[in-house]
């Protein structure tokens, strides 16, 4: 079992790219298990890498990682979103959150959320989290932390 005491939570660095990409892919594959409309592409690795690389250099994204003995075991990424029609206006939207199974149930996910809130608190007015509607694990997790639904995203397939 992973010892949570040896885990360091810190800002992501460019050299973390591959570790983060791996976890982001695992997250997307997990989404696929809940809903076939999240079927991952065969070339997901290339796109995940580009996505992480550009987020790492963007002012509008924050990535925090949990590291244990040189290995990335958890990641959280939030983007700054300007809600041009509404108040409060600036939103920090958590788009990626993943913790390796053996490090779960230790409060690590919660700590990642707390750290990202701490980092963003001077820049945003509110924090949201975006995840597939059918991802029960995410639903349970965010409900437990006191989040509530704010925006619905419905779909109908037009081409099979």
């Amino acid at each position: 079992m992973g010892g949570i005491q040896e885990i360091e939570i810190r800002d992501a660095k460019p050299e973390d790219t591959n570790g983060i990409v791996e976890l982001v892919i695992r997250l997307k594959r997990l989404n696929e298990e809940f809903d076939p409309l999240f079927k991952t592409r065969d070339d997901i690795a290339i796109h995940a890498k580009k996505y992480v690389e550009s987020a790492l250099v963007s002012d509008e994204s924050v990535i925090v990682v949990a590291e244990r003995k040189g290995k990335i075991v958890g990641v959280i990424k939030a983007d700054i979103v300007d809600r041009i029609f509404y108040e409060p206006r600036i939103e920090g939207r958590i788009r990626e959150l993943y913790v390796l199974p053996e490090f779960r149930r230790n409060g690590l996910g919660k700590r990642l959320i707390e750290v990202i809130i701490e980092k963003l608190k001077n820049r945003v007015d509110m924090i949201t989290a975006e995840f597939p509607t059918l991802n029960e694990i995410a639903i349970r997790f965010y409900n437990r932390l006191g989040f509530r639904g704010i925006m619905s995203n419905y779909t109908i397939e037009v081409r099979k």
Partner: peptide, 18 residues
């Protein structure tokens, strides 16, 4: 093992195996 690809899925499909 804890990092096998399908372990995430086991968490909700077969938590005993997870």
């Amino acid at each position: 093992h804890a990092e096998r690809e399908d372990v995430d899925k086991l968490q909700f499909q077969d938590k005993w195996k997870y």
